[in-house]
Amino acid sequence: MDFLNAIVALLNFVIIPASAYGAQLALGALGVTLIYGILRFSNFAHGDTMAFGTAITILVTWGLQALGVSISPLPTALLALPFGILATAALVLGTDRAVYRFYRKKKSDPIILVMASVGVMFMMNGITRFVIGVRDIQFDDGVRFVINAREFRAATGLAEGLALRSTQVITLVTAVLVVWALFWFLGRTRTGKSMRAFSDNEDLALLSGINPERVVAVTWIIAAALATIAGTLFGLDKSFKAFNYFQLLLPIFAAAIVGGLGNPLGAIAGGFVIAFSEVAVTFDFRKVVAYLVPGDWTPDGPIQLLSTEYKFAVSFTILIIVLLFRPTGIFRGKST
């Protein structure tokens, strides 16, 4: 029985939250890695693109709520998501036209594009704050739990409760659908294949008659969709605050690099590696250990490698280890 309790505690505090967080990071990292593969620079504005997409989604959610539209038990935000995606796609396409295209035509050094993305980051950050403010916003109006800790205890008779929030389930289901759709698109459609070809060998893609501007535009639209979905899922699961999205940039970059920049499969793996490490390293395992060892063996202090304040240090450490030993990432992305 204690063994089962330990498993339940582990599920409840590590595996479920880390899976949801991993899915959110994976979607974010997919956007970064696609932009990198096609446009060949690390987009520092991606965190703020996520924030912008989420902000628009929240505004539309409020509008729908005011109109009395609801898809209960699911959160209204899911219904608002397409509007958020459309607005974000329009924004990034406009940004590409106004900012990035110039440097692309000039064949500027990638670092200049990174610098430009910092300017874009500032502007998007300003726009997002302008649109929705700097407050912490809760916008999940769906049913809170799929499995409730109290009911779980009553049903199973275990001492340990298991809570499965609906936002976690929604996150995972959405992520699976999105990833499936993305890989279908990249692997099966003409446009998707032309994107991969462009990422593989730009000159040869041009010789084959692939239109670079079209590839770039499609990439931005997909990145905007991924960013908005990732941001909305993150906001539903936790809450929305513009600055938190800026801070997500580090784990997202870490996930993309760990998986191999430019490699979509790697980005997903990287997202889960980062998320599980972050949650496991900052989790206090005392509760789990207490179930597994005799009562008086349980240590008094927390069994925790790092306090939660240092969760960013985890992604950073993994990033450094990967840079030291395998700079192209686990899945061999682009090295140059």
């Binding site: 991969r196 070809a197 593989d200 060998n201 040869l204 008659g209």
Partner: peptide, 25 residues
């Protein structure tokens, strides 16, 4: 049609996809 001396394939794509890309237009 032109075959460059180096980097003349799409390395991460399958042979069949390479051929498909040749026929992109």
């Amino acid at each position: 049609a032109f075959v460059p001396q180096t980097s003349n394939v799409f390395p991460s794509m399958t042979v069949e996809e390479n051929l498909e890309m040749g026929a992109f237009l």
